[in-house]
C-alpha cells in the first residue's frame, strides 16, 4: 500500500468501516509511514477537539422565558428581532418559481452551446433572478407546497450547491455573478428543460420517481426528504 492509497482509506478508518485484509494492510502502512501516521493522528485530534468543544456561551433562563412568552402569545407580542421575516406569500413564490422553470425549460437547450444565443439569455437571468438565493427561497417555498416535486428538489440542490460556492468564495460580487451566469444556468437549463419535456414542472405525484438521494436512504423512516420542516419564512 502506498501513501495515496492509505490516505484514501482515512475516511473508512475514521468511520470504523475498515475491515479485513484492507484494514491489515492499512495498519501495516501506518506502522511504516510516519507521514500518514501523523496526518491520521491530526484528523483524529481535529475530530476530538470538535467533539469536546464546550466554548459556546450558555443560554440563560431568560432565553427560555422570552421564547415561551413569544410562542404562547403569538407574533404580535414578539419582543425579538425578526428582521429576516419577509413572508413572500406562497402563491406568489410558487408562481415566480414556476415562471422560472417554464422560462428555463422553454428554450431549446442547444442554445447553451451557442455563445451568441447564450449571451442575452444570461443577461436575462441576471435581470430576472438577481441572485441565487432569491431563486432558492422561491424553490424552497414551492417545495414546501409540493414536497414530491422532483424538478424542484433537483433545482434546490443545484442552487444550494451554487450558494455554497458563493458563500465559500471570497471573490467580489461582480465576478460571482458572472460565474453564476456561466456555470449554474447551463446546469439549470440543461436539467430543467430536459425534464420538463416529459412532464409539467408541478405535476409529480406521490409516486414520483426516486432520485439518487432516495436510493441512498435505506428505509422509509430514514428518508432525508421525509422531514418537512416549516418553510424558512413563516
Amino acid at each position: 500500500m502506498n501513501c495515496e492509497q492509505s490516505q484514501n482509506l482515512f475516511d473508512a478508518y475514521l468511520d470504523n468501516s475498515l475491515t479485513g485484509t484492507l484494514a491489515t494492510e492499512f495498519g501495516a502502512h501506518q506502522l511504516a509511514c510516519s507521514h500518514c501516521r501523523r496526518d491520521l493522528a491530526l484528523l483524529e485530534v481535529a475530530g476530538h477537539v470538535v467533539a469536546s468543544d464546550n466554548e459556546a456561551p450558555l443560554l440563560d433562563d431568560e432565553f427560555t422565558s422570552r421564547l415561551v412568552e413569544c410562542a404562547t402569545d403569538g407574533p404580535a407580542k414578539r419582543p425579538l428581532k425578526f428582521s429576516r421575516a419577509l413572508w413572500v406569500g406562497l402563491p406568489a413564490a410558487m408562481a415566480a418559481c414556476l415562471t422560472m422553470i417554464v422560462w428555463f425549460g422553454g428554450d431549446d437547450a442547444s442554445n447553451e452551446s451557442d455563445p451568441e444565443n447564450s449571451g442575452p439569455r444570461v443577461l436575462g437571468v441576471e435581470d430576472e433572478v438577481r441572485t441565487n438565493e432569491e431563486l432558492l427561497e422561491n424553490v424552497l417555498e414551492a417545495l414546501s407546497v409540493d414536497p414530491n416535486n422532483e424538478e424542484l428538489k433537483d433545482l434546490a440542490d443545484k442552487l444550494r450547491a451554487k450558494s455554497e460556492k458563493i458563500i465559500g468564495d471570497t471573490r467580489d460580487g461582480a465576478s460571482l455573478l458572472q460565474d453564476y451566469s456561466e456555470d449554474a444556468i447551463k446546469e439549470l437549463v440543461g436539467s430543467v428543460s430536459k425534464k420538463s419535456h416529459s412532464r409539467p414542472a408541478n405535476s409529480v405525484g406521490e409516486n414520483g420517481s426516486q432520485d439518487d438521494a432516495m436510493q441512498d436512504q435505506k428505509n422509509g423512516s430514514s428518508d432525508s426528504r421525509a422531514v418537512k420542516p416549516p418553510t424558512e419564512e413563516l
Partner: peptide
C-alpha cells in the same frame, strides 16, 4: 443519515462533505 435529513441533502453528499472537510483540514 440524520445529518442528511438536517442538511436536506442525500447521504452520499454528506459523506462527500465529510471527506472533503477532512481533506481540507489535513
Amino acid at each position: 443519515q440524520e445529518i442528511a435529513t438536517i442538511l436536506e441533502t442525500p447521504v452520499a453528499t454528506v459523506k462527500s462533505h465529510l471527506h472533503r472537510a477532512r481533506a481540507k483540514l489535513k
